[in-house]
Design a protein around this nucleic acid. Structure first.
Lengths: 216, 216, 216, 216
DNA sequence: TATGAATGAGGCTTCATTCAT
DNA sequence: TATGAATGAAGCCTCATTCAT
């Protein structure tokens, strides 16, 4: 079986090569400039060969989207051990998530705006019970439970809270990508406020008062 | 003048026909699948005639975007007079906004995800001082000021709050559009929670406690 | 008949209007940018009406070409009376011709490069006996005969001489138009040399020696 | 390598096929009627395949122009060794040049009337010092220097002379192409006169007298 | 006389995909 | 496994021309 294994491995490498090239093109030119020809050019093969590794262009795109999502999840989990205090963990993770997403705007947009089942498998967050399938939600729920451990909420309440946070973070990232000309300073002002204030409000922590205004 | 008037009316109708067709295509296939050819096919005219009514494809798109924008603004302002109580007004307006946006998903997406200056002129919300240019933000700020009239916040704090709300609403709408297969029930659960709880948290109203859990 | 006459006059005026507009477009944008629509725009009528005055675009073009040629001929004849001395007249006329042609490069090119019989009727210069049809040749032949009146050449010889001059002048103008980036100074150096030396050589006047080199 | 070689050869053949078709179209309809579609039709392939062999339409045109240029240069240089006597060489070369040009009228016209820098690189003849860049001028200057070696002229005078000859030859070729209906007999009469008389006059050889009239 | 609507052909070009080799 | 040739559909757009009014 060694031969077949090696073949499979080589095939896998080629697939990766193609996906990387595609990712680069998307990063540089945007998703609708991606074409089989451009991929072929970049990997220095002929366009036709790509069809040996993927059925068609959509296939490639879907693979790509899922991969992008994986990256973000990985980034998220790096925050898992960051602090004992759940609120700190929540803030760290959110900031991580936002920054990772902003570092690969095209893939993030493409993945998060893609409605194909292949991609939604990874990105869907709104259905009831999504926590069990979606690591980002799962992580948030853990934090939220921890935060409210003295006056426990129902699973359902916690999930809704987490979903609202995910939704809002998504909105922030998306608009920052769209309004790309925004000044850096204002960009970080918004992110800071989101992480330091808004999330905590959504997590049900803050009272009436803003946090002393110093961060504003 | 009757002749000329009738002609003008007919021209306007044709323009509307074209715009409707375009909207439908965007709705079905997404914005980057819109083409002059597809529009022509749908209205059962030759492609060239479209250039009789619009200078070029971008023209059509811009018209479409600004129409979408108008609809939303109209929806918003209908909430203006809805109630004396600012919290109610806030909730009404948000719900209105969300529902209007969801009623024309692809136009909304197209408008809100478009980075061209022409469109951003209407949709940009994140820059400092956006309140002065963006009616949705302006409306939110008015409510927020009213809500906090007993312990006034700075203009800047209020704007940030409003921006966070806009961002979150945008995130919600966007994800609902992407996860279009979501069950209706869950969809309205999320919207209700957003309008009845999340917004109020973001507006700095709610304390630690959820509102009795009745809406969950 | 007064009514019909007036109608005809008005029709003629419209035709002129159209031709003028066409000429202007050709002058500004070059001949292959000429279109019925552009003409219509310029005269502030609808494109269709143009077909009331001309059968088609080619018609317009042909009319235009002949007109351009007429202008040049007119310019030529202004030299007719310039001097008693035939050599001076020859030089004057040639310079006039060249300068008029250079002042309307697009029309000149278009007219002179057009092979349609309608235009050739005016521009053809090479056939035997062309002198009788072509005023430019006729004028040249007159000068040449005058110049050589002491040792008369045959009509045929004179015509050949004139044709060579016409050909050469045409070559000069054409290349100056093509090599439009040429420095002004060099441009006039070439024209001067052509008028002061080359023509005289072709007219059989000069001997071995250049004219003292002062003009070079 | 045989496979690759054969492929390359076939590719070259296809390129030639395309260029020939283009030349034919230009010959029949003029340069601004050339289109990818027409070429495709003529070679009985689909339009898109043409982009497999050339990057774009301009590419094809440029190839065509430079081929035309090469042909002429080759024709010219074949006259280089034709005779010891410089006057004979001058006459031979000129005749060669004219005949080569007339054998590919539309390519010649297209090349010589093209104002794009890419083409002018090859065809520009009027600027001061053009002799150093333009083989045709260079060849002429060599002859002229040789002819006048007993009473040398300045480089500058020689270049002007050569330029006048080039201009006149260009004018002759061009008008022969435009007046394509001219009788063969008259056509050769003009060429003969140009080569046997006019050039020599322009080269500063002939005196007052025509060469015995025998050629007329 | 004059118009606006409409078309079909044609302009360049890019692309996903198939197929023979 | 890999290639190059080839196509047909599609992208945007311009134009000459016709026709009903």
């Amino acid at each position: 079986m060694s031969l077949e294994e090696r073949r499979e491995r080589e095939k896998e490498e080629m697939r990766k090569l193609i996906l990387d090239a595609a990712a680069e093109i998307i990063f540089l030119d945007g998703i609708d400039k991606l074409s089989i020809r451009k991929i072929a050019e970049r990997i220095e093969y002929s366009p036709s060969i790509i069809y040996h590794y993927f059925n068609n262009k959509d296939n490639i795109l879907n693979q790509l989207m899922s991969n992008a999502y994986q990256k973000i999840i990985t980034a998220l989990s790096s925050a898992k051990l960051s602090s004992d205090h759940p609120v700190e963990r929540l803030k760290d993770a959110t900031r991580n998530y936002i920054e990772t997403a902003l570092s690969m705007p095209n893939e993030y947009n493409a993945a998060q705006l893609n409605s194909s089942p292949d991609v939604l498998k990874y990105t869907a967050s709104l259905f009831r019970g999504a926590t069990n399938k979606n690591p980002a939600l799962a992580f948030l729920c853990d934090c939220l439970k921890d935060i409210h451990k003295n006056a426990p909420r129902s699973e359902s309440e916690i999930e809704l809270m987490a979903q609202m946070i995910v939704i809002a973070a998504f909105g922030l990232i998306m608009r920052l990508n769209v309004e790309a000309e925004l000044e850096e300073k204002q960009k970080y002002r918004l992110i800071d406020h989101f992480v330091n204030v808004t999330i905590l409000q959504m997590a049900g922590i803050y009272t009436n008062n803003m946090p002393g205004g110093k961060s504003i």
